[in-house]
Computed example of a mutant assay.
Amino acid sequence: MKFLKIITFIVFFTTVSIGFAQKKEVQINVTKVSDHIYMLVGQGGNIAISVGEDGVFMIDDQFAHLTPKILDAIKSVTNQPVEFLINTHWHGDHTGGNENMQKEGAIIVAHENVRKRMSMEQFNKEREITKEAAPKEALPVITFSKDVSFFFNNESIFIFHVHEAHTDGDAMVYFTESNVLHTGDAYFQGKYPYIDLNSGGSVEGYIAAIKKALLVINDATKIIPGHRNMSNKAELQSYVKMLEELKTAVITEIKAGKTEEDVAKNTTLTKKYDDLNYGDWFISSERIRRTFYKSLQKVH
């Protein structure tokens, strides 16, 4: 029994040590996207900042423990303060630093459903976890129901809601003069998307969101996805084609009377894109098949 306790302690200590080491090792990498737009990559959702005489206009803020590193990264390109912080949706890897940024003086803006979801305890049935409501200091203080525009750093910034996509509170941010689009998690570059059905997301809405983005941008637009690498219109067009092909395949299975388990086990449905490594990241090929089945079964 004593030996078991010692082993348990060693495993616990090692796990905690690795956790702290991973936090310590996270670096915030800064990439210049245009004359005054930068992309910040660390741990969590990709951040974008607009830098200019009006200050810093920021999109998403990753996790709370990274705020000091993120602020240092911002200071490497400007001494201006963060005036506005836009949350593209409510998930913690995009809003975890909200309270810290509010204390720094940032005004937090998001779709009204972001504030609603952050304000209440969240239970995710799929992962069987409970998330406590965010403190008042972390909540958006300005919300919008559809679209909103800012005029900041000598350009107009168009923020538009995409309904029932990754969640029910997603927003994309388009810097019109810089021709840069931040999609939030309505686009996972090169990998299957996480469609959060428990937060109002849907396959139909996700596809519609990308099609809406394609109407806004052009061939020269630089795209900052919610996760992974900078992208462009051609890649986004290929991505929506992938989603539509999977949608068609799964609907065919549903109409043939197949169950969720049948679809989950049918690797041929996603093989084309599995071979292109779409399923070797956060969302596996089995999980995307289950997600598509659950979402599409409701409407077909």
Rank of each mutant, 00 (worst) to 15 (best):
A110V: 10
E132D: 03
P140S: 15
V173Y: 00
L139S: 05
I157S: 07
R117A: 01
L181Q: 01
A106T: 04
N153W: 09
F151M: 06
E128F: 14
S178R: 09
F144Y: 15
N179T: 02
D170L: 05
I159F: 06
I108N: 07
E104V: 08
E128W: 07
M172K: 02
A133Y: 14
E132F: 07
F152E: 06
H166I: 10
D185K: 00
S149R: 08
F175V: 09
S178A: 12
P135Q: 06
P140M: 14
Y187D: 00
K131D: 02
K146L: 10
E164N: 15
T130F: 15
V162Y: 02
V109M: 05
R127K: 11
K125D: 05
G169K: 03
E164C: 13
I159D: 07
P135W: 07
P135G: 04
V114Q: 04
S178E: 13
R115S: 11
K146G: 05
E164Y: 08
R115H: 11
Q122Y: 07
R127W: 14
E137H: 03
P135N: 05
T183L: 01
F150M: 13
A165N: 03
A165W: 11
V180M: 01
V173K: 03
T130W: 13
T176Q: 10
D170A: 05
K116N: 12
F151Q: 12
S145H: 06
S178C: 03
F150W: 15
K103C: 04
S156Y: 04
A171S: 15
K116S: 13
M118R: 14
A106S: 13
Y187A: 00
V114K: 00
E104K: 14
E155I: 06
H161I: 10
A138S: 15
I159P: 07
E128R: 12
N153K: 11
K131C: 04
M118F: 12
N124K: 09
P135Y: 11
E137C: 01
T143A: 09
R117H: 01
V148K: 10
N124R: 05
S156W: 00
K136S: 09
K125V: 06
F158S: 12
I142W: 09
M172W: 01
I108K: 06
N113H: 12
F150C: 13
I107Q: 09
V141L: 07
D147L: 09
E121Q: 13
A171K: 01
V180K: 02
K125G: 03
F144E: 12
V173R: 02
F175A: 05
F158Q: 07
S178K: 10
N179I: 01
L139T: 09
E112I: 14
S178F: 02
V180T: 03
M120A: 15
Y174M: 03
N153F: 09
S119R: 12
I129C: 08
K136Q: 12
S145F: 11
Y174W: 04
G105R: 03
G184R: 01
F158C: 04
K116C: 05
A138K: 09
I159A: 07
T130N: 12
E121W: 02
A138D: 08
K103T: 07
R117L: 08
A138C: 07
V162Q: 04
S149E: 10
L139N: 11
Q122T: 02
V162S: 02
